[in-house]
């Protein structure tokens, strides 16, 4: 046992925070971060899938033959994605609609499969759960941060409803501010993420 459970958990929050340190799962990162609400919603959905699939993959690691393991992992992941898809459709329909096809696409999110293959298939259940939860929360934080940058610059306000937590901050920069519409469009997503990555590199690799 090289690392304690707490270390497995906290590494996802800074040292290996996706998608900055682990450059995986870029599609949802770029696509759903128009607003903080969508970013965090997507992050929490991914965290749920990551946690459950990590636990199950780790528990079944001796049962799944190594030749067909990828197919097995994908079925496990797809099952949990279907579960969260139905839950969001039932309880948070608005969020479900604004995330659109990116919820079923969690299946092909490389972070989830990557953690199953690189971590859960080699470690115990508790360590895998800690790893899944840590990476998932790190991902949620990144999406929230990128969403905040894009929403604040792009519309000059913050507004939304994250699983019942409602917030509304209009006119952050005052009335004279002209919204920087570029940021909420497709090119702004690439630029925003690229420049945030640059800033993280400046702060320094740990």
């Amino acid at each position: 046992m090289a690392k304690s459970i707490a270390q497995e958990f906290t590494k996802g929050l800074w040292a290996e925070i996706p998608p900055f340190r682990l450059v995986l799962g870029l599609c949802p990162t770029l696509a759903v971060t128009k607003t903080v609400q969508d970013g965090i919603g997507m992050g929490i959905a991914t965290t749920f899938v990551l946690l459950c699939s990590n636990i199950l993959v780790s528990a079944l690691k001796k049962v799944i033959p190594s030749k067909v393991r990828i197919a097995g992992y994908i079925i496990i992941i797809a099952t949990f994605v279907t579960v969260i898809e139905m839950m969001m459709k039932a309880y948070t329909y608005e969020l479900f609609q604004s995330l659109g096809i990116f919820i079923p696409l969690i299946v092909v999110n490389c972070i989830v499969l990557g953690r199953a293959e690189a971590f859960a298939s080699k470690n115990g259940v508790v360590a895998s759960a800690a790893d899944g939860l840590g990476i998932g929360l790190g991902f949620t934080m990144s999406l929230g941060a990128l969403g905040a940058v894009r929403e604040i610059l792009g519309t000059g306000a913050l507004k939304g409803d994250v699983f019942g937590f409602v917030y509304n901050i209009p006119g952050i920069f005052g009335d004279a501010f002209q919204p920087f519409g570029f940021m909420v469009e497709a090119p702004g997503a690439f630029m925003g993420l690229g420049l945030m990555l640059c800033m993280l590199n400046l702060i320094g690799k740990k």
């Binding site: 450059v23 702004g188 997503a189 690439f190 630029m191 690229g194 640059c198 590199n201």
Partner: peptide, 12 residues
């Protein structure tokens, strides 16, 4: 990756 993302932004 950082410059690649910024470049992709310009292409986008």
């Amino acid at each position: 990756t950082s410059i690649a993302l910024v470049t992709a932004g310009i292409l986008s």
